[in-house]
Amino acid sequence: MAFVPGEPLSNDSSVVLQKAREHTLLIIDTNEVRAQHLARLLTFAGLRAIVTSTSYQAFNRFLKERFVPRLILIGQQEETTNPLFARFSQRLLQDLQQDIPVMPLSSIYLNDGLLLTAEESISSTMHCISPPNRLILRRIWQVLPSAQIPLKTMEHSMALESLPKIGFRPRVARSKRSFSSHLHYQLKAAKHVIPPDQWDVLTDVGLAQFCQEDQWPSAVDQFTIPPEYFSLLTRAVMFSRPEQPLQQVHHWADQVEADTLHKALLIFLMQQIPKIIGADRTMRTLLGVLTNEIDSRRGEKLTEWKRLEDGSFIFVFYSNIFVYSQMGSERPLCTMWQSSFDLILRLTKQQQQWNIREVECSSQTHTGHCVFLISPRQR
């Protein structure tokens, strides 16, 4: 069966974060829960939120970071009568040579910040778009139409159309919880790569609770972490180095500690496998190891792979955590999984044997699922 290759991950940051760079939205809201939910929603829609609680904080961040807000979202209407807000608005007009529209949040209620989510009671095969949060985005788009993205699932996708014909069984996450240890080590790695003066970027993506290390989830294998946290953290890592976001994610992936692939015994076994069983069986073994590790972290079977007749392999991440709820991307975004595959090839000295790349990403198709193609290199 033939598959149409997707576009490889782009190193062009002007593409990867283009919409976010062009659409910064400033939130001024003392309601922290609402501000964090809204920050998540904007992040999942491909935008860049700057989260503050007062005009003073917003003004300070503007002077320090020189961002260009396209829209100001105000939580408390009385904030607009604050003399400091008037000074801030005047400074924006002076520096940017344009009036920045202001939108009140008083009538907006967000139960969560999710845009695309697994709801098995609605669909057992693909993710669903949140109706109430869709309406909130449309209100924002009325003021900022250039920020719009298509809020629908791609009509034709490999995960839902082509792959089931060869035995794949699309599914969505049921428990929607992952190991707390997984996020703990992801945060620990992020702390190494995000500059200290940018660590508050976690607040801007809706993860303010993790700015303080003593608030991190414990390093134990308990199913407590919602999948969207991984997607938001990935975005925070990208925002911390906007000129080279994908390279920053690769650097982050390389820093992750306590990953099964780094355990000495497994590294030894992985290095010995190719000497014993050859390239094809090596890949089968490695994919089995990876599948078991990922599924154990999530507490359910959310990966699937098969070998094709031409010797290639297809690997699917269902309800993929690293782009969970993300929509409207211009390119595949599963850099974390790409880095994991690259690491596997390095550890097993299989770089010359296999080429691995993402051929379908949920951030583009909006199915919730991501597909990788593993092909033998031509000799």
Score class of each variant (00 low, 15 high):
Asp95Met: 15
Met154Asp: 09
Trp354Ile: 00
Lys176Ile: 13
Gly328Asp: 15
Leu163Thr: 00
Arg171Leu: 06
Arg357Trp: 08
Lys275Cys: 12
Lys306Gln: 15
Leu269Val: 13
Trp252Arg: 00
Gly46Arg: 11
Leu135Lys: 10
Asn320Leu: 11
Pro145Asp: 14
Ser296Leu: 14
Leu207Pro: 01
Gly6Gln: 00
Asn82Asp: 15
His23Leu: 06
Pro5Ile: 01
Ser157Trp: 01
Arg241Ser: 12
Lys64Met: 08
Gln352Ile: 09
Trp216Gly: 04
Ala219Arg: 05
Cys128Trp: 08
Leu286Thr: 01
Gln255Lys: 07
Ser10Arg: 08
Trp216Tyr: 11
Arg307Phe: 09
Pro195Asn: 07
Gln77Gly: 11
Glu309Gln: 14
Thr43Met: 03
Lys191Pro: 02
Leu163Cys: 09
Ile344Val: 11
Arg34Ala: 04
Arg134Pro: 02
Gly206Lys: 00
Thr52His: 06
Glu79Asn: 14
Gln76Val: 13
Ser121His: 14
Arg134Tyr: 05
Gln248Met: 06
Arg40Val: 03
Ile344Asn: 04
Ala58Trp: 04
Ile267Val: 14
Leu261Thr: 04
Leu160Arg: 02
Leu26Asp: 03
Gln378Lys: 13
Ile225His: 07
Asp12His: 09
Ser181Tyr: 10
Met270Lys: 09
Gly278Pro: 02
Gln198His: 09
Arg241Gly: 08
Trp337Gly: 02
Phe62Thr: 01
Leu302Thr: 00
Ile28Asp: 00
Leu84Arg: 09
Lys275Gly: 15
Phe341Trp: 09
Arg298Ile: 14
Gln198Glu: 04
Ala118Thr: 09
Asp204Gly: 04
Gln272Trp: 05
Leu343Trp: 05
Glu309Cys: 08
Thr224Gly: 06
Thr43Gln: 05
Pro332Asp: 12
Ser107Val: 10
Leu115Tyr: 01
Ser106Thr: 15
Thr335Tyr: 09
Val143Asn: 04
Trp141Arg: 02
Pro104Lys: 09
Leu26Pro: 01
Gln326Ile: 15
Asn31Val: 02
Arg284Gln: 13
Ser319Cys: 06
Gln98Leu: 12
Thr153Gly: 01
Ile276Ala: 10
Glu304Val: 10
Leu73Glu: 00
Gly288Val: 06
Leu144Gly: 05
Ala173Pro: 05
Lys191Gln: 12
Asp200Trp: 10
Ser10Gly: 11
Ala35Tyr: 01
Asp200Leu: 11
Leu144Arg: 13
Ser107Glu: 05
Asn320Val: 07
Pro332Leu: 13
Ala86Ile: 14
Leu265Val: 09
Gly75Glu: 03
Gly288Ser: 13
Thr348Ser: 15
Ala279Pro: 05
Leu71Phe: 05
Ile344Ser: 07
Ser340Phe: 07
Asp259Gly: 08
Asp204Asn: 08
Leu160Cys: 07
Leu110Phe: 02
His127Thr: 03
Arg174Asp: 05
Ser319Ala: 02
Pro150Asp: 06
Ser10Asn: 10
Thr234Asn: 13
Lys64His: 06
His184Leu: 03
Leu93Asp: 10
Leu269Lys: 07
Asp221Ala: 13
Gln272Glu: 09
Phe372Asp: 02
Val237Cys: 08
Ser362Gln: 08
Gln57Phe: 10
Leu63Asn: 11
Glu309Tyr: 12
Ile294Ser: 02
Arg21Asn: 15
His251Leu: 11
Arg346Asn: 15
Pro150Lys: 06
